[in-house]
């Protein structure tokens, strides 16, 4: 008994405080996939039934609704194009050099951690799809989390509601920066160290601020639903409801951030030429002034 308990405790300590056992995790991770496959059968059967067993009138109604929606969105996209160009021009005036253009990859949820204290999900994309650790994951409504482990054909995602997760956000209304951290509850996250004098009100929308180089800027994170000003505390408790359906979404998007340079290629090449010219003029030495 003692020996086994000791071995268990030793493993816990080694795995908690070092990364020595990381390869072991990776070897065995794949054994869990069949279980996820089996347990996702009911949900997938429901999906299939929703798709296949549907009446003609419902399909027609759907089609009508989708056509209308498409028209509305197309109209909005036209304005988007104009706004993007204007935004680029303004950024150019401000000497900002880059604008983010994100690509996304659709993925599906295949498993949820059975432990209610760890908010980790598995998705069906892995190294084969060029998924990388730290990649942001969103659903249709907002930011969901980030990839923490990548395997060949699946990967694991830490959700923003996990108590180990924190991300830099800003208030969309006034750009006030804050850190939003999970508290282990799927329905809420909290803002860390908010002083009572700062300009936040219930109903403010939080978006990712892009600081920290992990999440791209501007994705919705949540809405402030409650601010508790406790007189005895230095900071206020801010309760935020996540924008993403963190515990319900099954179809997710993986974000690939691309950089769209405003400085055109011509400008860059002339700059390079200038540098090389200088270098050759200095007799091959790197310009050092």
């Amino acid at each position: 008994m003692l020996l086994l308990a000791f071995a268990g405790a030793l493993l816990i300590l080694i795995d908690s405080f070092t990364t020595l056992l990381k390869p072991v995790h990776n070897w065995f991770e794949n054994t869990a996939v069949p279980f996820y496959w089996v347990t996702s059968l009911p949900a997938r059967f429901k999906d299939w039934a929703d798709d296949s067993v549907i009446s003609r009138s419902e399909l027609e109604a759907d089609r009508k609704r989708l056509t209308t929606e498409l028209l509305v969105y197309q109209g909005q996209v036209q304005r988007m194009a104009e706004l993007t160009v204007e935004n680029m021009r303004l950024r150019n005036l401000l000497n900002a050099t880059e604008l983010l253009a994100d690509n996304v990859l659709v993925t599906q949820l295949i498993g949820v951690s059975p432990d209610p204290l760890t908010h980790v999900i598995s998705i069906n994309r892995g190294a084969e799809d060029k998924i990388f650790v730290g990649q942001p994951v969103i659903d249709g409504e907002g930011l969901m989390g980030q990839v923490i482990d990548v395997f060949n054909d699946h990967s694991r995602v830490l959700l923003i509601t996990d108590s180990r997760h924190a991300l830099p956000v800003k208030v969309a209304r006034n750009g006030l920066r804050a850190i939003a951290e999970g508290v282990g509850d799927y329905r809420q996250i909290a803002l860390r160290d908010m002083s009572p004098t700062q300009d936040i009100v219930v109903g403010d929308t939080l978006v990712s601020s892009g600081l920290g180089d992990r999440f791209p800027e501007g994705y919705p994170v949540g809405t402030i639903v409650d601010i508790n000003k406790d007189v005895g505390n230095d900071f206020v408790d801010v309760v935020v409801e996540p924008a993403a359906k963190v515990d319900r979404s099954r179809h997710l998007l993986l974000v690939f951030s691309g950089e769209l340079k405003l400085v055109s290629d011509n400008d860059l090449s002339t700059e390079k030429e200038l540098v090389t010219d200088k270098a050759s003029a200095n007799g091959g030495a790197v310009p050092g002034e």
Binding site: A7, L11, I12, I14, D15, V24, H25, E29, F35
Partner: peptide
């Protein structure tokens, strides 16, 4: 091995 966050 299969699901644990921490081995042991």
């Amino acid at each position: 091995f299969m699901f644990g966050e921490i081995l042991g």
